[in-house]
Design a binder for these strands. Sequence first.
DNA 1: ACCTGTTGTGCTAACGTTAGCATTGCTGGA
DNA 2: TCCAGCAATGCTAACGTTAGCACAACAGGT
Lengths: 388, 388
Amino acid sequence: MLTLAQQVAPEPAAPLPDHAEQHECYRWHTEGDDRGTSQPEGTLNVITTRDIAERLGISVSTVGRALADDARISEETKFRVRQTASEMGYVGNRAARMMRGASSNVVALVIPDIRNSFYSTIAHELSKNMAAEGFQLMLSETDDDRMVELRHLRELSANRVAGVIIVPTARPHSESVKLLRAVPHLQLLRRHPSLGSQWFGVDDREALHRATAHLVALGHTRIAYLGGPEELPTGAERLRGFRAALEEGGLADDAGRAELGPPSSVHHGREAVRRLLQEPAAPTALVLGSIQLTLGVLEELSAQGVKVPGELSLVGFGDEPGFSWWGPGLTTIGLPIQEMATSCALWLLRRLKNGPENDGPYTSVSPGSLVLRGSTAPPDGKASSKSS
Amino acid sequence: MLTLAQQVAPEPAAPLPDHAEQHECYRWHTEGDDRGTSQPEGTLNVITTRDIAERLGISVSTVGRALADDARISEETKFRVRQTASEMGYVGNRAARMMRGASSNVVALVIPDIRNSFYSTIAHELSKNMAAEGFQLMLSETDDDRMVELRHLRELSANRVAGVIIVPTARPHSESVKLLRAVPHLQLLRRHPSLGSQWFGVDDREALHRATAHLVALGHTRIAYLGGPEELPTGAERLRGFRAALEEGGLADDAGRAELGPPSSVHHGREAVRRLLQEPAAPTALVLGSIQLTLGVLEELSAQGVKVPGELSLVGFGDEPGFSWWGPGLTTIGLPIQEMATSCALWLLRRLKNGPENDGPYTSVSPGSLVLRGSTAPPDGKASSKSS
DNA sequence: ACCTGTTGTGCTAACGTTAGCATTGCTGGA
DNA sequence: TCCAGCAATGCTAACGTTAGCACAACAGGT
């Protein structure tokens, strides 16, 4: 069978190595019989307004104004300029324009990890809304490391991004705070007081409160919570919601068990749930506090063949594609990320258009919802309501 | 119970509306008793080298050289400049530097949709590798629309990005081709001849060939393929692999049935598999040609309660978290996206460092692998090998 | 005393674009 | 005939940074 590489280059067929053995196979073609351009790429001399002006025998100003559709330029000149610009492949230089005081058309999204579907959804909504208004999106991943965050913010500042939407690390560096102060910005999901009071988030406490209360109502008395560390604002809120629900349910202090750790580690989710199940008085119910942890827990429970909700009732976090078909269907905490992201985008766009006017403290809290499926039941093992 | 908003603003508690009813609740605080800075944000006058020079009574050149750690500047001056720069919160203006011929430190990733985990994995790897070398990542989503793609490429060109990694649409606009020609670029996964011969992709044909051959070997004689349109290079290759395997298996022409459609529509996956199962001579096996279609199919089969592999053998595409715990475990086509993305990043970095030298046609083809789980079996219904 | 080299710094131009002001040629009213 | 007014365009400076060249001060060798 022919492979793609062989189709592309009609050289004598050097058979490809075994697929199972290596991951990549490189091919340098020595001759350029390829359909692609033969010009050295990336070396194209860039066209400026001056080039156009010289070609047409007019001044740079006129060219600039014609391209900007200035009213003072005759239609005929405009037409000739535009035509020539197009012919010569002119592309305006935004860096030069920026130096004349214009602001950039780039906004940045600073998040822990784009692979988390939470954040990729946000990135998508943001990108879509921003692109519609002519803005480009810059993506910076912090990996929840404040120094990485700082490095990114330095770069973003140097690039003079017009705005920043950030899911901050637990305790941003003081220089990060300074840098953000010079740019319209918005905190998302997590909130750190030093970064100002523009914040869009979810009511984490309420969300976990409802999830936990649901388990309490079913009659569970040994409930565990597995979530992010308390130093993260979201982690702290979620833990509070969990504890509050236990307290309100009149459960003893030792009824609840909280296991905190890195929230974006699938691996940690697997480890933690394994430990929990091996304990002498293992919990009969488990609430989760992050998507990645949920993914890990689901993997581990599947692997171990734990019966849900028979042996363990489970409330997940977030609502990923696989959650609905996992085991009996995963009861989970659903969050309106898409709507939130859109709101963020619109807020930032308005802020960028209107300037700092009316730019007082601003906060938007979205509530979560409890999506009831089959993974929760009373502790005796009888399945409860099952609906999607 | 208190909500976050109330904690943030100690105003008389206006009770939050019912959570189930609305998605967001806005709060404008009229007074700034917030901990955040009281400076008008985003209005900070930006510091330039000139400001530093004036403060120290030296020339801009000296400041510039001190900051660039030029050997000709005395250590003492360097120290004073750096200190003052830090004090004043100086952040170099990359736009100005770019005008002096320096290239930008931004590379762009142009993809259909970041929500596809395929692409978010790529974005992550790219971002990580690029950030390590001081590059920032710009994200552009095309939604598989060539005009959107064009608009993005225009913006990217205006911003003078240093490089572009692109998953092109089926038939890029001729202006897109021109624009890309001026920038070091690299095609990923999909390949369009007009965009040159730098390409990293997977052996789509081989991957689908193996998946289909696996089903043929099990004894299936009515096999369906559900994948992207033939106009996409990946779509065409996958279809070819599917057909080739059928042919080699000695099956009649009508044994195979190909259903083509939008590859990134989960909804279309659901619809299509529903139609397939209702047909008079419904297929006994199904191979999929995209992640999103696979997600749709899994949802639909779960919802309908179709027995897999009893009633239908299934080979998915990609390897998402949920695939291993879906039903009996999904046999699927695994692709080394992570490794591919890393290779892309390294290639582009090398290209950016070394310039166009040695920049001939280049192609890298990664093979896929068949991950055997429980969703495939002989047509009589007996389960085959089950391993993860 | 002169030349040479070194060290540290300043001056100036240039990158591509745009905004303010000046200039040219023309039309129409006094 | 002269000038106001307008339309169309040109000239120049400025944005912040950097590279090339010039310059000043001083040391060491002849």
